[in-house]
Design a protein around this nucleic acid. Structure first.
Lengths: 198, 198
DNA sequence: GCCCTCACTTACCATTTGGTAAGGTGACTA
DNA sequence: TAGTCACCTTACCAAATGGTAAGTGAGGGC
């Protein structure tokens, strides 16, 4: 059944996000479900392959969302802003995915052969295209556009990933205020950066 | 000897940065030096304690650097900008430290009791203070200032941590262009954000 | 000479790791 | 009725894990 596979992938996503690839044992993943470790191995063959499926699922979702915003075809300048805001929203809605991608970034050096960050390349490329094509940004060169994209993604992902830390540092109440305002503040950052004269 | 301890801490920093806490065995750290695993345990007692020392050392350095810029007492507005740029520089100069801190952020939920992200709180607080105190930013409330700080730190750290991934995605040459320009682009982001009208 | 401390080693251990081998069970098919 | 297939289990394993115990040997103080 695909059902069981799906449940494994969900449990694995959560576990990998929280503890990382090396910090997660396949036994721990299986224990979160009414199955044994070997059921997992039956479905996915190995830990590495399961991980690849988890990654693939996330990148598929990212691309789908990007496509979604694109089809809503607003004014190009707004669409660009909206894309980043939309990305921010899903990013805090699915903190597990965000954490996992961040970890993948960090493990990339080590797991160079096996890892599949390639999945994310089309996502990045699409964003860069949008920045380059949007005339108001005045960024005709791709590597400048990539810098802009990276700055904004950084501002988004770094915050999304810091929830537990910030909560512990400043308390839940203070964090709520911060989070409540962050989308508006992010919009300000995006606007400031996109419209800054070169 | 303190010498040996230092060597262990250095080797551990590199290893923890590359593979994470769980992905690094104390044996692997010791193997990078002409010592046995037990020499490590002799000096630090446990893996967790060694990790704490690594973290402490990094946070000490961060605070020292922050103090350094503060003493160079430029115009307050420039000092704020310079602080972030300085942070960016050391961040790419010491990719290991940056990676390790990012991992710490991610592991925070799990290692809530043992972890010492607290070390970083003074660093964050100092930055927030600087933003609040600087009148041109128009940010009197601390949680707005914290949002600004987080956005900029995110833009810095996320990029710093992505070197291997970006290199593999776009090739070393293209990455060099990106990196060569990033400081200037970062300055633009900082300026745009700090001076944006509220 | 004796003792103690410090830096470090060898020996050892229980536990956990990812993975293999060899089934068992029920549903569907010939 | 027998065969086969997908799904899942129990049994098992070699390697690696963090850590304990018990030293060894050099240097310094007395």
């Amino acid at each position: 059944m695909t059902e069981t596979r799906e449940r494994f992938i969900s449990a694995a996503t959560k576990a990998f996000a929280e503890r990382g690839f090396y910090g997660t044992s396949i036994a721990a993943i299986a224990d979160a479900l009414p199955y044994t470790k070997q059921a997992l191995l039956h479905h996915f063959g190995s830990k590495e392959k399961l991980y690849a499926e988890v990654l693939k699922r996330i990148s598929d979702r990212l691309m789908a969302e990007l496509e979604g915003v694109r089809e809503r075809a607003l004014d190009p300048r707004d669409r660009l802003e909206e894309t980043f805001v939309e990305f921010y929203r899903t990013t805090i809605e699915r903190p597990d995915d965000t954490q996992l991608l961040m970890r993948e970034l960090l493990d990339n050096k080590r797991r160079a052969e096996t890892s599949r960050t390639w999945y994310l390349k089309p996502f990045l490329e699409s964003l860069v295209d949008m920045v380059v094509e949007e005339p108001s940004t005045n960024t005709r060169s791709r590597h400048v556009a990539l810098a802009v994209v990276y700055q904004l993604l950084g501002a988004i992902n770094y915050f999304a990933v810091s929830e537990p830390t910030l909560k512990r540092m400043f308390g839940g109440e203070e964090f709520s205020k911060l989070r409540g305002n962050y989308e508006a503040e992010l919009r300000r950052l995006i606007a400031a950066r996109l419209d800054s004269e070169q």
